[in-house]
Design a protein around this nucleic acid. Structure first.
Lengths: 191, 191
DNA sequence: CCTACCGATCGGTAGG
DNA sequence: CCTACCGATCGGTAGG
């Protein structure tokens, strides 16, 4: 039994926030999960809100890293494919942080919430850029509403953790491929 | 200043739950919104959980009615169009109930939560039925994974209230049309 | 990380 | 629907 690290506490908070919500989680609940008292958590972090900030910014970071990597790929089609696969990997490999990031932002203090919202907008803009590139390369028609397309795509991607199971019928690689095909075709593109 | 009805209380609860979450809402918060004391709410309902049940089952009912109406339409394409338009109308005309239904189900008592989950599965089955009909009518290919298709479609539909604005660039009728086209094309169908 | 607390707020009730 | 409460739980702190 060694002492817990700050990261352990944050990871535990992420799991609780993702399943029970920020307001549905008490410091004592969290302590129980970690095998310590609720009050002992204050030896590692300043407070409950600080935990939410850490979890959410951790989640945001995963998505940003993934998007930036996707932009490095050659060719718009490859970028779109990488963006989709990257998003699915983040959401499934970091379920707690990703879900908290996607669902609990509203409970951040107003100022921090705005910052995170901007960061999320920027992430969406990466996808818009990629879709624009698809139009420029002639993979997608100029008539495509790229803004709507990015919203549809992210709606699908952000829900994956709600139904996907690693042991299910559909495999993860197939899913990425299928979403890519669905989106590209949906926009009238050529595969 | 006349007395509030039970429905007024439930509507108020829906608004609060949708924006602040079930656990982020206290009976006193709710009373403030309604212009009464938190404790006065107990003259109308048995408790907080009963409010959540009422809001969520109200939301579920709107969706069910909409889906059943869609199934009455002639032709699979028309049914799909009606299902999509109906879902968007429910989510935008009853934002509070719909959002609470979609986001706060986990906070229902276990038994009730299972019932609601079944109801939601049944709603998804309506869409699967419609997509199956599309395959049978030759609008969609037999290779289409109808289960995945229904998930993608509902993912898009369930997120609409998060970004759509009545005063925005895209009109509601255009949106329904656009989602319909996106889905049908995405599945390799013919418009 | 625990002991021993604190004031504030929570869901809810009795009685009118 | 209000007055006047109740015990339980909340986020958080002082001191070790």
């Amino acid at each position: 039994m060694t002492r817990l690290s700050r990261d352990d506490i944050i990871a535990g908070a992420g799991r609780r926030f993702a399943t029970h919500g920020y307001h549905g989680t008490s410091m004592r609940d969290l302590g129980d999960d970690l095998g310590i008292l609720g009050s002992s958590i204050y030896a590692h972090v300043g407070g409950k809100q600080e935990l939410l900030v850490a979890v959410i910014e951790g989640g945001a970071e995963y998505f940003d890293v993934s998007a930036k990597a996707a932009l490095e790929v050659d060719g718009a089609a490859g970028q779109l494919k990488a963006f989709i696969k990257g998003h699915i990997d983040v959401i499934l490999d970091h379920r707690a942080e990703a879900r908290t990031y996607l669902s609990e932002v509203d409970f951040l203090d107003p100022e921090r919430r705005d910052t995170v919202a901007q960061r999320r907008d920027r992430y969406e803009m990466y996808l818009v850029e990629i879709l624009d590139a698809c139009v420029m390369e002639g993979i997608l028609s100029k008539e495509v509403d790229v803004r709507l397309a990015s919203i549809y795509t992210l709606s699908i991607l952000n829900t994956v953790d709600r139904w996907f199971s690693e042991s299910g019928r559909v495999k993860r690689a197939e899913l990425s491929e299928d979403v890519y095909r669905f989106v590209l075709r949906g926009l009238g593109g050529t595969l």
